[in-house]
Amino acid sequence: MSDNQLSHINQRGEASMVDVTEKAVTQREARAEGYVTMKKDTLTMISEGKHAKGDVFAVARIAGIQGAKQTASLIPLCHPLMLSKVQVEFEPQPEQSRVRITSLCKLAGQTGVEMEALTAVSVAALTLFDMCKAVDPGMSIEGVRVTEKLGGKTGHWQGTQP
């Protein structure tokens, strides 16, 4: 298969899970980011831990970790992976009235962890939205992307700022 072909489509054009049987086990990691933009008052409330529902970042962090672990159940052709590390972090950015969410996923395996890193950020962002929607229904989730990956055939890849 050439590098410009879709990896999850077989020769007949049907959806197909990639066969990684012959791929070497290597250390792999991926990082992703995304943003939740909100009203300044909402950002202040959750940054200061004053939300009536409790610590929004703690709940969203656990949700992001759980999301990464469930990626194969959510994305049909993803391989179930034995993740060795999932990290989810939040960075309030008051000047842009948003929260930057970052994730790191690692493992020793035969396939990459980009989808798990993206899922961690996405589920954390959705949880943050869910917990705050009653006070700020106009929030938006933006810019979810892979920022870096290491390991595998392609080695080290780092994204550029959009």
Rank of each mutant, 00 (worst) to 15 (best):
M1W: 07
D3I: 07
Q5R: 14
S7T: 14
H8P: 11
H8K: 06
Q11T: 06
G13L: 03
E14K: 14
S16I: 04
S16L: 11
M17E: 05
V18C: 08
V18M: 15
D19N: 15
V20H: 09
V25M: 10
T26S: 15
Q27L: 09
Q27V: 11
R28H: 09
A30D: 11
A32S: 08
G34Y: 07
G34P: 09
Y35W: 09
K40V: 04
T42V: 09
T42W: 00
L43E: 11
M45H: 02
M45G: 01
S47D: 14
E48W: 00
E48Y: 00
G49W: 01
G49V: 05
A52N: 01
K53Y: 04
K53N: 07
G54T: 01
D55C: 03
D55V: 00
F57T: 05
F57W: 10
R61F: 03
R61K: 15
A63D: 12
A63W: 02
I65M: 13
Q66W: 00
A68R: 08
A68Q: 06
A68S: 05
Q70T: 07
T71G: 10
T71R: 07
L74G: 01
L74I: 12
I75E: 13
C78N: 08
C78M: 11
H79K: 04
P80F: 03
P80E: 01
M82Y: 12
V86D: 04
V86S: 02
Q87L: 07
V88H: 05
F90P: 15
E91G: 02
E91H: 10
P92A: 00
Q93V: 15
Q93F: 08
P94M: 01
Q96T: 02
V99Q: 12
R100F: 00
T102S: 12
T102A: 02
L104T: 13
L104E: 03
C105L: 03
L107A: 05
A108T: 01
G109Q: 09
G109N: 09
Q110M: 15
T111H: 02
G112M: 02
M115D: 04
E116C: 03
A120E: 13
V123F: 00
A124V: 06
A125Q: 14
A125G: 10
L126A: 15
K133D: 07
A134L: 10
P137M: 04
G138Q: 15
M139R: 08
S140A: 14
I141Y: 13
R145N: 12
K149R: 13
G151N: 11
T154H: 14
Q158D: 09
G159C: 07
